[in-house]
Structures are given as structure tokens and as C-alpha cells.
């Protein structure tokens, strides 16, 4: 099966459709036209650049270049986790806890998948390692960001309740237990919902892309199942690690709730 190559004019026609939509939103005075066009331009530029990077990376296929790429992806994801929180742990902890949780869960699951399950040769073959890690980080990032955001916002709103529980002699884990559980659930539910809806409500993007690129659907489905499972595991453990360490940071060694360790962002 051959893949039909896309040339610049074919992409240009799709771009014209976006311009048409922008014109319509401008006519309907939605105030979206500008941001729509900027976002479309960013998609084109960012994806072209990453395409160049991947082309270069695939051609050298050296471990240290793959590792460097992985670290850059991780740091960008950590920054994104921090940026999405309205109430942040102060002193770099928002970035640190998010990044470390994603590192532990995403990297561990990706390594496990590469070494044990897929087994390309060498194991760091960028064609497998980078897309896998990318999918993993992208989803874990959402879970970690949702979980931490839910945690810090609930603590901010329910400070009096947590402290009243402390006053009655509850250990900190018990005083914040309900909030911590809710935060973990909030981080993990989107992934669970995505697994439940896969194939019925939506055809997952990765599978669609693979089929478009000429893979037999049966093979694409197998990869998609693998990806969904690993994403779920990565997101789950990442969210739990982030919420656990985040909640620990909110209390000091005397088990006091330290509101001075949360900053409200405007």
C-alpha cells in the first residue's frame, strides 16, 4: 500500500478553509479570528520544526541525542503543568513536583514498553521511543496538572475544614484524605473516560494516523491498545505521585497546614 504524498498546495487548500472559518467568525463577531489564525500558524510552524528535528534525530539515531530530546520534552511538560495551576506551590515546588512525577511515571512506563513489550533494536530507536514518550508525557501532563490544580485549589478553599480536623488530633494524611482522593480521581478520570469511549465515540488520533499512513487497521488497533494501556498506567501513577508529594509539601514536620506554601496566581 502506498501513501499519497502531500505537497504544499494541498496543505495550502486546507489552510484556505481555516481562513474561510476565520472570515466567518469575524463576520459573526465572535472575536476569535485573530487567535484562530495565530493558532493555525503556530501549528504549521511548530510541527514543521519538530518534523525537521525528528528527521535529523532519526537519521543519527544516537542514544544521547534521543535522551536530550526526551529531557527537553520533559522540561516543557513540567513548565506546562505549572502554568496550568491557579494556586501554585511556591518556591519552584509546582515545577519540581510536576516534573519529577512525570519523569518517574512516563519514563518508567516508556522504558518498560520499549525494553519488554515492543523490543525494537536498539531499544532507543527514535522512531519508537520519541512518539511513545510524547504520547505518554502529553497525557500524563494533563493528569498531573489536573490533579495538582484540584489539590491546591481545594486546600485553598477548605483550609478551615482541614485545620478543624487537625485540631481534633487527626494526622495530616487523614485531615487531607478526602481532598487528596478527589484530586487523584480528577486527574485519572479523563484517561479512564478516553479508554471507555475509544472506538465508539471517537477513533483515536494515533490509530487514524497510522491507518492513513498505510498500516493495516488490525496492526494500528494493536498499537492503539498498547498506547492506551501505557498512557493509562503512566497517567495514573504520575497523578498519584504528584498529588501525594504535593499534599506532603503542604504540611510541615509538625503536621501544620502551611498556607504560605501556596501562591495564588492572577
Amino acid at each position: 500500500m502506498t501513501v499519497i504524498d502531500l505537497n504544499i498546495w494541498q496543505l495550502g487548500m486546507a489552510a484556505m478553509l481555516v481562513v474561510l472559518l476565520a472570515a466567518c467568525t469575524w463576520y459573526a463577531r465572535l472575536g476569535l479570528g485573530k487567535s484562530l489564525l495565530i493558532a493555525a500558524a503556530r501549528t504549521a510552524i511548530q510541527l514543521s520544526l519538530i518534523g525537521l528535528v525528528l528527521e535529523a534525530l532519526f537519521s543519527v539515531a544516537r542514544l544521547h541525542w534521543v535522551a536530550l530530546m526526551a529531557v527537553i520534552m520533559l522540561l516543557l511538560a513540567g513548565r506546562e503543568v505549572m502554568a496550568r495551576q491557579r494556586y501554585r506551590l511556591s518556591g519552584g515546588w509546582a515545577f519540581g513536583i510536576g516534573t519529577l512525577s512525570m519523569f518517574v511515571s512516563s519514563f518508567a512506563v516508556t522504558l518498560l514498553t520499549l525494553l519488554v513489550i515492543i523490543g525494537p533494536d536498539p531499544w532507543y530507536t527514535p522512531q519508537y521511543a520519541i512518539p511513545l514518550l510524547g504520547m505518554m508525557l502529553g497525557n500524563t501532563m494533563t493528569g498531573v496538572a489536573l490533579g495538582l490544580d484540584r489539590l491546591t485549589e481545594s486546600v485553598w478553599r477548605q483550609r478551615a475544614l482541614i485545620e478543624n480536623r487537625l485540631m481534633l488530633g487527626q494526622p495530616w494524611q487523614e485531615a487531607i484524605g478526602d481532598i487528596r482522593r478527589e484530586a487523584m480521581r480528577g486527574g485519572m478520570i479523563p484517561t479512564i473516560n478516553a479508554m471507555a469511549a475509544a472506538g465508539i465515540v471517537s477513533l483515536p488520533g494515533m490509530m487514524t494516523g497510522q491507518i492513513l499512513a498505510g498500516s493495516p487497521p488490525a496492526l494500528a488497533v494493536k498499537y492503539q491498545i498498547l498506547i492506551m494501556f501505557t498512557i493509562c498506567v503512566g497517567t495514573g501513577f504520575g497523578t498519584m505521585a504528584a498529588v501525594l508529594s504535593g499534599s506532603r509539601r503542604l504540611f510541615d514536620q509538625r503536621e501544620r497546614l502551611r498556607m504560605d506554601r501556596i501562591r495564588r496566581m492572577h
Binding site: 487537625l166 485540631m167 481534633l168 488530633g169 509538625r254 503536621e255 501544620r256
Partner: peptide
């Protein structure tokens, strides 16, 4: 520990 103290000295 903090929680043991607060169980004794209750606010």
C-alpha cells in the same frame, strides 16, 4: 508528633 499534641491540647 503534631497530631498527638493536638489530641491532648484541643482547640
Amino acid at each position: 508528633p503534631g497530631h498527638s499534641w493536638r489530641r491532648e491540647v484541643m482547640l
